[in-house]
């Protein structure tokens, strides 16, 4: 086991001419819940995609549990994308089969239990499910694994406050205690109290990395308030996309 779970050194990624990440240095430990915060287009999704092996960095290095993204890291990373990834023909139970086949840490019983408590019938065809139900199935798949690293891309965007509480509660009660949760969002006030630490991204750079309680102690205000202050001027600057 490497000391830090995630280690990024000088990490950069550009899509053609457009930079998405610029020299990110970041180290995250184990057993933490970390918020990846930043306005739209700040590089949150790009960083998460690099960590789960969907994108290759243009420059710099990244390791997860001491290894570059690859087959090993994919086996210990549980990833919730910001979109649906289901094939039409599947039922939730087909997806459970698939996860059980490919991920040694997938707990099928737990997935069934979570479905029951979420009111999802796992025998239903995905095609016939509502958007909210599909999101729940995806959350179940991700949280029923005993992963080292959970990468959750905007897990609470576009859901109502009740569902948001529910999702946060599901994450809190189901994540692996020795694992780390990294979740990206721009809705901080709702989740601030579940976070250990936060990473602020702006224009693809890390501009703040500290624990929530340190921020509150030093600034005398919530992370949400600090976030609003730091990014208030952003729309006015303009032209940097």
């Amino acid at each position: 086991m490497a000391d830090s779970l995630i280690c990024c050194r000088g990490l950069s990624k550009a899509y053609g001419q457009r930079p998405a990440l610029q020299g990110v240095d970041l180290e995250l430990g184990r057993g933490r819940i970390v918020g990846l915060l930043g306005p739209n287009g700040s590089g949150k999704t790009t960083l998460i995609k690099i960590l789960c092996g969907l994108l290759r960095p243009t420059q710099g290095t990244v390791t997860v549990d001491g290894q570059a993204p690859g087959v090993y890291t994919k086996s210990i990373v549980s990833y919730l994308p910001d979109r649906m990834y289901f094939a039409d023909w599947m039922k939730a139970t087909d997806l459970f089969d698939l996860f059980a086949d490919f991920y040694a840490d997938f707990d099928r019983q737990k997935a069934m239990d979570m479905c029951r408590s979420l009111g999802v019938n796992p025998a239903d065809r995905i095609k016939t499910m509502s958007k909210g139900t599909k999101e729940k199935v995806q959350l179940v798949l991700v949280m029923a694994r005993k992963a080292q690293l959970y990468l959750l891309d905007e897990p609470i965007a576009g859901v109502d406050p009740a569902a948001r509480d529910f999702i946060m509660n599901t994450i809190l009660t189901n994540y692996n205690e020795t694992g780390t949760v990294l979740l990206s969002t721009h809705l901080i006030s709702d989740i601030e109290r579940v976070l250990d630490e936060v990473v602020f991204l702006q224009y693809g750079r890390v501009i703040l990395h500290n624990s929530v309680d340190n921020i509150r102690e030093q600034e005398g205000k919530s992370v949400d308030a600090l976030f609003r202050e730091m990014f208030r001027a952003v729309p006015m600057e303009g032209g940097r996309f």
Partner: peptide, 13 residues
Amino acid sequence: GSEGYLMNTLPVR
């Protein structure tokens, strides 16, 4: 496509 988010994050080459 979007199913790629599932397939390309499976621990396979």
